Simulated assay, not measured.
Amino acid sequence: MTPKKEDYLKIIFELGGKKKKISNKQIALSLNVAAGSVTEMVKKLVASHLVEHEPYAGISLTTEGAKAAEDLVRRHRLWETFLVNKLNYKLQDVHTDAEVLEHITSNNLMNHLEEFLGNPKRCPHGGVIPRQDGQYEEDSHKVLASVLDGQEAVVDRFIDNHDLLEYLADVKLNIGDKIKVTKHTPFEGPIELVLLASGEKMSIGYKAAHYIFVR
């Protein structure tokens, strides 16, 4: 399987494609690629029986695709955990090296790495890490953008996207923060919220709010 196909499988998994239909637009935004590129790759993934595509409804992983995505995600997130927790990488800088390492690592090494790290359940940006036996807790797929004015939530995880993680490092929104949404600005403007622990007010861009998951 090519690295490009693997990237698509991982992002479809992250966006919830094992449980629901994902749109081409979501994939394009998450990977920073053109819509036409997504269309072409989805055709290839369908031909490989890794995804199903229902016109006007969306894209979801097949059983085979989900299994492949889980293995890729496990490898990638274990290496991210190692690089951040043991080598002091910044979260926004970890993706590229984890991408390289996941492709050159044997299953035996991955199992030893998981044990060395203490069998972590989640990576540094909050994503679930499937275990050796394929079991894992289900991720939340409720995005910040869908939280109504006046509602409270807890920041659960971020999409593994360098630009997003750079942005979040600047605004200082973190995993585990308890928030209250105060206003959705019209015409795809920023979402205004308050951090409940400190009372600090914050604005999150409309696009970014679609790749921040909450519980």
Rank of each mutant, 00 (worst) to 15 (best):
K142L: 12
R122N: 13
N107G: 07
A69G: 03
L91I: 03
A208T: 02
V155C: 12
D149P: 06
E54C: 07
L165A: 00
V128I: 06
L164G: 01
I59V: 08
L168R: 05
Y89D: 14
L113F: 02
D7A: 05
E102P: 01
E80A: 08
A169G: 01
E99W: 13
A209F: 10
N174D: 11
A208R: 04
E114M: 07
L72W: 03
H95K: 14
K178C: 10
H112L: 13
V154T: 14
N24T: 09
I27H: 12
L72G: 04
K20F: 02
D71P: 06
L165R: 02
H184E: 13
M202Q: 02
L196W: 00
K19W: 11
K180Q: 01
I104K: 14
G16K: 08
M41H: 09
L78D: 00
T81F: 10
R157K: 11
E64S: 11
L164E: 03
L109H: 03
D71C: 10
E188W: 07
A145F: 13
D71E: 12
A28T: 04
E64N: 11
E115V: 06
F13V: 02
S23W: 04
L31H: 00
V33R: 14
K67A: 10
L45D: 11
V33T: 11
K19V: 08
A35Q: 13
K43I: 15
D149Q: 11
N119I: 04
Y136Q: 15
I212P: 07
L45E: 13
V194R: 05
A57M: 14
D93E: 09
G189S: 01
T2L: 15
H53V: 08
D170S: 02
G176W: 06
I179A: 04
Q151L: 05
A34N: 15
D97Y: 13
H95R: 15
K25M: 10
I11V: 14
G176A: 10
I204R: 08
H53Q: 14
L165M: 06
V155F: 12
N85F: 10
G36I: 07
S23L: 08
I191Y: 06
S146E: 12
P55Y: 01
Y211P: 08
L165W: 01
A35R: 13
Q92V: 02
N88M: 12
H95D: 11
H76C: 11
A209H: 05
K21E: 13
H125M: 08
D160H: 12
E115F: 09
I159T: 11
V33D: 08
N24E: 14
G17N: 03
S60F: 12
A98E: 06
D149C: 10
A68Y: 06
E200N: 04
F116Q: 14
A153P: 04
S37C: 08
E54S: 09
L173S: 07
E80K: 14
Y167H: 08
L109D: 03
L31A: 05
G126Q: 09
N111H: 03
F187V: 06
E166W: 06
P124G: 04
L195P: 12
H125T: 04
K180S: 04
I204Q: 05
L91Y: 05
A153D: 00
D149T: 05
E14P: 05
D71S: 08
M202N: 01
I204E: 02
F13E: 07
N111P: 04
A145S: 15
F116S: 13
Y206G: 02
M1V: 10
K121D: 08
S198A: 06
F213R: 05
K183I: 02
N107H: 09
K5W: 14
